[in-house]
Every structure is written in structure tokens, then in C-alpha cells.
Computed example of a mutant assay.
Amino acid sequence: MELAPMTKRDKILLYFVLMVAFVVLYIRFLLIPGIENHQQAAADLVEAETAQTTMQDTILMASANAAQKNTNWGELQTANAVYYSLLSSDELDTLVTSLELNHNLQPESLSIGQPVTQNLGWYVASADAGRTAGPSAAADTAVTAGDAAATAEGNAVLQQFLAADLVPQYDAPGYFRTAAISFNCSGAEEDFLALLDDLAANYPSVQLNTFSMDTRSYANMDGTSSTGTVFTVALSVILCDKGGVQP
């Protein structure tokens, strides 16, 4: 069977179909992938330029960052200086007894509790932390593993003034402790008030919880009577494991 010769109209139609197919294939397999590659390359270029700018800024700020780190470390040392290290019972005894004797008060009794680990979430740390209000009553319990999350929240405050490489030192909730101390002493009321003023001005890591005054009468050896005042005081001494904040 012989094919009929193509007419001029058939040739034009075939040519048109071939051209449309060529255009479709060019757009689908050449033009669109090229545009996508160009857009991706442009996005990669912008990202690289941003990273380069960030790196340049970091390099330029290196000296400033080092100076800020030194400043932060100095602030940490200043804040840490107002805290006592982990004192023994004998050392706490010496601290309190010396305070009484230095104000002409006569020690009568003394009770020292074991240092209790506190949760940093209940205590806001700052450069002036020793002069802020003490931990709430809820903080008088030992820290358990479940307190770690609350401690992490408290660490966010520390990041405001601590160098970044020092912050991990505070991840353990046990760096902050308090020792409860109660004592009785006797003497003149003005001397006791001077002791309270001394505590407020010079002992930021010793927090006064409660005190009471009881005036009593007693007989002297010569048969005369005298009156004296007995003072009952409850303190909390803040202790810091300073070994945990060294560089």
C-alpha cells in the first residue's frame, strides 16, 4: 500500500507540531531547571554573604568579647566574695561567737544545723545578691532530682552577668547552701542593736530570720537584785561551694 504524498498543508502542520514539541521540551528540561538552579545559587550566595558578615563581626568583636568576659568574671568574683565557703560547725561556731563577743554580749547557748542544699530557682542571683531578701520558707527543704528543671530556670538569671563558659558550673543545684543557726546571749539592749546593725551592714551572707528579747531579774552574790536581757536569735548563713565557680 503506497502512502499518499504529503501535501503542503500536511508539511506545515508537521512542522508546527515539531516546533511546539521542541519548545515544550526546552522549557521543561532546560529552562525551568536552569531557573531553579539560578534561584538556589542566589539563595546560597546570600546565605554565604550573611555567614561571612557574621564571622567578620565576630572577629571584630573578639577583643570586646574578651574584655566583657573579664568584666563578667570580675563581677562573679565580687559577688562570690560576700559568701562564705562551706564552713564546718566549728567555723560557724567561731563566726557567731566572735560576733557576740565583739559587741559585749555574753553567749549562753548555740545550735547549728547541718548545711541544707537549696534550689537556685527560689533565689535570684545578682551582683548584689547578698543584700536581697532571703529564700522563702519553701526553700528550706533539700534539693532532689526533680528540682533540676527549676534550677535551670534560675540559671537564666545568671547568664546576664556570667561569662558563657562559666554558666555550666551552675548546672548542679547544690552550689548554694544555707546553715540554720540559733543562739541565746545576754547583755545590754544597745549592744544587741549594734550587733543587728553590724549584721545588716557588713554580713550580707548572714541573714537574720527572727529575734526576741526577754528581760529577766536575778539575784547578785551580795543579795541585791539586777535585771538583764536575754536575746534569742535565728540566723541563716549562706554558704557557697567556691570550688565550683573557678575557671
Rank of each mutant, 00 (worst) to 15 (best):
L18T: 01
E190A: 09
L14E: 12
D140M: 13
A137R: 10
A21V: 11
N70M: 12
M221C: 06
L30S: 09
A129G: 03
Q160Y: 06
A79Y: 05
A150G: 13
T132V: 10
F29A: 03
F176G: 04
L110M: 03
S226F: 09
A200S: 09
D147T: 02
E190S: 15
G146L: 12
D222C: 06
T215M: 15
Q68P: 00
L14S: 08
Q159K: 13
D191H: 00
D214F: 07
A164H: 05
Q77N: 10
F183I: 01
A200C: 01
P135M: 09
Y15R: 09
A145K: 08
A62K: 14
W73D: 02
L86N: 11
Y218T: 09
L87M: 13
T229K: 02
A79L: 06
S217D: 13
G134N: 13
N80P: 01
E190I: 08
G146V: 07
L30E: 11
T50K: 14
L120E: 07
A188V: 10
L95R: 03
L162T: 03
E49G: 00
Q39G: 00
A79M: 12
A219W: 12
M221H: 08
D140Y: 14
T53W: 02
F16M: 11
I32N: 04
S126M: 04
R131Y: 14
N80T: 05
Y123A: 11
V23S: 14
A234F: 05
V167W: 01
R9L: 04
L196G: 01
H38V: 04
A148P: 01
Q118L: 14
E2G: 10
N37Q: 12
T227P: 00
T94E: 13
A180H: 06
S212W: 03
V17R: 15
L99A: 09
I181W: 02
V143D: 00
G228F: 00
W73M: 05
S236F: 12
S111I: 07
K242M: 02
A81E: 06
L86K: 07
G174Y: 04
T141W: 13
A139S: 15
F29N: 04
G228K: 10
